[in-house]
Computed example of a mutant assay.
Amino acid sequence: MLDYPGQADRAVQLERSALFVPASRWPMIEKAARSPADAVIIDLEDAVAPSEKEQARANLVRALRDLDFGPRLRIYRMNSLDTPFAYRDLTEVVEVVGDRVDLILVPKVNSPDDLRFVARLLDQIELGRSQTRPIGLEAQIETANAFLYAREIAAATPRLEALIYGPGDYAAALRAPLASIGERDAHDELYPGHRWHAIMHTIVAAARANGLRCLDGPFAGLRAPEELERASRTARAMGFDGKQCIHPAQIAIVNRVFSPPPKEVAWAEAVMRAYAQAVAQGRGAFNLDGKMIDGANIRMAQIIVEQQRKIQARGE
Rank of each mutant, 00 (worst) to 15 (best):
I203A: 03
A270W: 02
V204I: 07
P50C: 10
D216W: 00
V305N: 09
R233D: 10
P5Q: 06
R25N: 12
E45W: 01
R151N: 04
D82H: 03
A18Q: 08
S130M: 11
A206M: 05
A39Q: 01
I304Q: 08
V96T: 15
P225L: 14
A301L: 03
R62C: 00
F147Q: 06
R34F: 06
A119Y: 08
V61A: 05
L174P: 03
F286C: 07
A313I: 04
A301K: 01
A156T: 11
A285S: 14
G282A: 12
I203R: 03
A209W: 04
A220W: 13
I253M: 13
G136M: 03
K263E: 15
Y275S: 07
R213K: 13
K53R: 13
G315L: 10
N297K: 09
E264H: 12
D82I: 06
L160Y: 09
I311A: 09
H247V: 01
V21H: 02
Y191N: 10
L288Y: 07
D216P: 00
G6F: 07
R88Q: 11
R299Y: 03
H197V: 07
E264T: 15
V305W: 06
I104V: 06
G136P: 03
A186V: 08
R184T: 08
A313W: 03
D43H: 03
E226V: 12
I303N: 09
D68V: 05
I141E: 08
E227V: 05
A205R: 15
M300Q: 15
R72C: 05
I135Y: 01
D113P: 06
Q307K: 14
D99K: 12
A139H: 01
P5V: 02
R151G: 02
M292Q: 05
A207I: 01
P107D: 01
K310S: 13
P27G: 09
L60Y: 00
A235N: 06
D185C: 05
A206W: 07
P218G: 03
R236M: 14
E161D: 11
L163P: 02
H201W: 10
G98D: 07
A313L: 11
N287V: 08
A176K: 11
L163F: 01
Q244Y: 09
E138I: 11
F85Q: 09
R88P: 03
L67T: 02
R72T: 04
L127G: 15
P36L: 11
R159I: 08
G290Y: 08
